[in-house]
Amino acid sequence: MEMQILKDAHATVVTITGRLDAVTAPEYEKRLNDLIAGEETGFVVDFEGLDYISSAGLRVLLATAKKLKVKGGQVRFANVRGTVKEVFDISGFGSIFQMDDSVAAALAKIA
């Protein structure tokens, strides 16, 4: 998995590519926790380049989102498609998280 972090005017855009699985999920969790600890409150996670997600990946998405909520922040997910979307749907994540069709749409809603 590769993570790219870009700061926009109103939010931090986290782009993840590759796999979010039992091996890579701890890295995602650590980097998001570091950002949250640094007082970042608005996040857009771009799933465009993510090919694979397992329950280990879902757990860290959920854990970091909860942490953010406690701090009054929010996260939106953009470009959740294909097999990743299927896993979201199986797990009911599609209704838990705020989803957008593009990063631009997500940023517009956070602003």
Binding site: A22, Y52, A56, T83
Partner: peptide, 16 residues
């Protein structure tokens, strides 16, 4: 490919 992806996911979940 789809079968392969599903299988990899199933195996990872089981091993967890």
């Amino acid at each position: 490919r789809k079968t392969r992806d599903n299988l990899l996911l199933l195996v990872e979940e089981l091993l967890q």
